[in-house]
Amino acid sequence: MSRLLTLNLRIWRQDGPGASGAFESHRLEGVSADLSLLEALDVLNERLIAAGERPVHFDHDCREGICGSCGFLVNGQAHGPRPATTVCQLYLRSFADGTTLTLEPWRARAFPLVQDLVVDRSAFDRLIAAGGYCSVNTGQAPDGNALLVGQEQAAVAFAAATCIGCGACVASCRNASASLFVGAKLAHLAQLPQGQPERGRRTLAMHERMVVEGFGSCSSNLECEAACPKEVSADWISWLQRERRRARQS
């Protein structure tokens, strides 16, 4: 039998973008420590539904830390206290019995609130649309082995490419900057020979879109790296500044 615990949840409730919001408190008793925090919210929602109240709205899907749907602040930290962990992979065994957890949505101008813990992150899609790709139509590809990529180099590109687009970097930055998100995509493609032809154009276009979408400048706090569930390195942000100079000069 697994350990049971009591959780005090303070959850941001807001009906919609125009409505005013407030924290609402709920006490969950006797929940298994082997549940994830999202599963604890499932339990809470079943109780709210039975009581005829509106359940708490949060984005989620795969529940294994790869789709990037979930994400909110847990006691002020994006995705909660565990490093390299999305909130769906945050298990209650990380918390002491009787803990109070304050849950609130990502707060950033570029991520308008939808409801409760849900925000609109479509700005990330528009950043990718600005240039986060290699322009190659289906059927135009050369042989995959025509371009050799060293093992180390492939691993570096892969590490940058693992960003899941959850928005934790933006939410944890006091300027709500998307520099880590943009830096990671630029770095992924710039480390590979396939990414070279559009390298400069891509850098300038994605950076410009970041400003247009209302993301701030890098605050140099490195909170983004600490919050990133995929541990994308903030070194890519300083690299991004060099890339911009390089792109402007070419």
């Binding site: 790709y133 290699c134 190659v136 289906t138 059927g139 135009q140 590809a141 050369p142 042989d143 995959g144 082995n145 371009l147 050799l148 990529v149 060293g150 093992q151 180099q153 492939a154 590109a157 892969f158 490419a161 992924h188 493609l189 590979l192 396939q194 990414g195």
Partner: peptide
């Protein structure tokens, strides 16, 4: 595989750089 490589999918590589 060729298409995905051309898009920049970072497949694992051998030391020599091949897929």
């Amino acid at each position: 595989i060729d298409q995905c490589v051309a898009q920049g999918v970072p497949f694992a590589r051998e030391y020599g750089g091949t897929l």
